[in-house]
């Protein structure tokens, strides 16, 4: 993990959007609805600035961050047979982030 602290302003924006997203999708199972939530889409709009925060979230809390990671990075390191397995997908993406300097 990187030892430098992220810029506080993007972090604050991320945390506010994250909280709004979580509130707005509580109890939801529809992945399209979850990831099309306006706050989630704004997180995607933060681009690579959001990646360290998303990684920290996945490490500490899990969550449906895979859409955002695919959209921001343009990559998809998850194997087809692992789709839907949240813990496995998080491990793969955290390894990807470490390899690409985003952890």
């Amino acid at each position: 993990m990187s030892t430098s602290e992220p810029d506080p302003l993007p972090l604050q924006k991320f945390e506010e959007l994250r909280a709004e997203w979580k509130r707005g999708t509580l109890g939801e199972s529809d992945l399209d609805a979850i990831c099309m939530h306006p706050a989630y889409q704004q997180i995607i709009g933060m681009g690579e600035h959001a990646l360290p925060f998303i990684c920290r979230e996945m490490n500490e809390h899990s969550g449906d961050w895979f859409w955002a990671l695919k959209a921001i990075t343009g990559d998809d390191p998850v194997l087809e047979e692992d789709r839907g397995q949240v813990k496995r997908m998080a491990e793969v993406w955290l390894s990807w982030a470490k390899d690409h300097g985003f952890d």
Partner: peptide
Amino acid sequence: RRWWPDQMKTG
């Protein structure tokens, strides 16, 4: 695992 036919193929 989570089932869902999302268009980004995460489920």
